[in-house]
Amino acid sequence: MDILTLVVYILLGIGLFFNLVGIIGLLRFPDVYTRLHAETKTTTFGAIFISLSIVVHSLHQYFHANDASGLSLSIHVVLAILVLAFTNATGSHAIAQAAYNRGQKPVRAVVDKLAEVEFLEKEAEE
């Protein structure tokens, strides 16, 4: 087996494994914050690795097999990775903030540090 094929398979396997772990965490964690924590990071990481395997393969096609479509495909995939990374991070932050503002507490939470900080800031303003 070619070493490059092996690299592509390994990257694909890492991506699929992390996606699987993220969905298992989404199904089994107890509240919305831990689910968000499990899902967003691992799914983004897995999508990045699956895309990396495609970038490696299509760049190999472009440089060694004279396939002209490989370069454009890899550039578009890199753009998609960038878009996915930025939007997933921002979207998960928005979801967590909305869940907090709705008044949802984590399971087994004892203290609410953010409320204390906001209370102290309000007192400092007055």
Binding site: R35, T43, S51
Partner: peptide, 30 residues
């Protein structure tokens, strides 16, 4: 609760994007 559903929807969106990227490599269509 509703935020749980939004988290699941976000996961589905990311997975659909990954599937589209892989299919673009399978069919060699940008």
């Amino acid at each position: 609760t509703a935020p749980d559903r939004v988290v699941a929807l976000d996961a589905i969106n990311t997975l659909v994007v990954a599937i589209m990227i892989v299919l673009g490599a399978v069919y060699k269509q940008t």
